Computed example of a mutant assay.
Amino acid sequence: MTRIDATFARLKAEGKKAFVAYVMAGDPDYDTSLEIVKGLPGAGVDIIELGQPFTDPMADGPTIQAAGQRALAQGMTLQKTLDMARAFRETDNETPIVMMGYYNPIYSRGVERFLADAREAGIDGLIIVDLPPEEDEELCIPAQKAGLNFIRLATPTTDDRRLPRVMQNTSGFVYYVSITGITGSAQAEAGDVAPEVARIKAAGNLPVVVGFGITTPEAAARIAGVADGAVVGSAIVSRIARGDTPAEVLGFVRTLADGAHSA
């Protein structure tokens, strides 16, 4: 059982939904980013999504793209992202960390070396948005063998013929993208999300968390109410971008977590 599995089991026993927060590693700089990451569990975050900066983030909207560019400009690398996870683990051995990003930096490092380093640093799962199920032998299956969850995205365009393939080697949870398009581009609607979550849960025995288009505590509550949890990324990253202090960012995160946990 991974930290991710244990977290969902605990939340289910408590009758609570998960709140997942995304931040870009190294944004606006390494030290500030680490301070925010270390503060997330205390602000109510159940699972941390740690973005790996990349030069060509095709699935990300302007807010996340800009965060990646800020981090890269500050010298952020894959190694420093792993270092950040390792530093987080010095004081927290329970909160799951999911690294979210793209395959190129991992491929450049070498899959076997990356997986060993990620496991040692305390990474629990991976979301690699540009590796479809047809490429599972590249990273997904080796990651599972190394003890990391490989989390797949499902979208409004994932039809019933495609869904079993998406679910086949997925573990930890399924990340349902509530809208078509890029991050930060529209609002998630619980009425649209609910039947899709039910469809995904019927296709496999995994928790389903919903992201994209959640910007307020009220929206987090509505979406968590029809899923196993809610993910917020762009709304948090935008607070970092405008220069909020770590305490201010974490205060905002707390309101979102309270919203999701109230569902």
Score class of each variant (00 low, 15 high):
residue 3 R to P: 05
residue 7 T to E: 11
residue 9 A to N: 14
residue 12 K to A: 09
residue 14 E to Q: 09
residue 19 F to C: 13
residue 20 V to N: 02
residue 21 A to V: 14
residue 24 M to F: 00
residue 27 D to S: 06
residue 32 T to E: 02
residue 32 T to D: 07
residue 36 I to E: 12
residue 37 V to P: 00
residue 38 K to V: 04
residue 38 K to F: 04
residue 50 L to Q: 05
residue 61 G to Q: 10
residue 63 T to R: 02
residue 64 I to G: 03
residue 66 A to E: 10
residue 67 A to R: 04
residue 70 R to L: 01
residue 74 Q to E: 04
residue 77 T to P: 02
residue 86 R to P: 02
residue 87 A to F: 01
residue 92 D to L: 02
residue 93 N to Q: 01
residue 93 N to D: 05
residue 95 T to D: 13
residue 98 V to C: 09
residue 101 G to S: 03
residue 101 G to I: 01
residue 104 N to G: 01
residue 105 P to F: 00
residue 106 I to H: 00
residue 112 E to V: 05
residue 112 E to D: 08
residue 122 G to L: 01
residue 124 D to Y: 01
residue 136 D to S: 07
residue 143 A to M: 02
residue 147 G to Q: 01
residue 153 L to H: 08
residue 154 A to L: 14
residue 157 T to L: 12
residue 161 R to V: 12
residue 170 T to N: 13
residue 170 T to S: 13
residue 173 F to I: 13
residue 192 D to S: 12
residue 198 A to G: 15
residue 199 R to N: 03
residue 203 A to W: 07
residue 204 G to C: 04
residue 226 V to C: 09
residue 227 A to E: 08
residue 228 D to N: 09
residue 231 V to M: 05
residue 239 R to F: 05
residue 244 D to S: 04
residue 245 T to A: 15
residue 246 P to C: 08
residue 247 A to L: 07
residue 250 L to T: 14
residue 254 R to F: 11
residue 255 T to E: 12
residue 256 L to P: 08
residue 260 A to F: 15
residue 263 A to I: 07
residue 263 A to H: 09
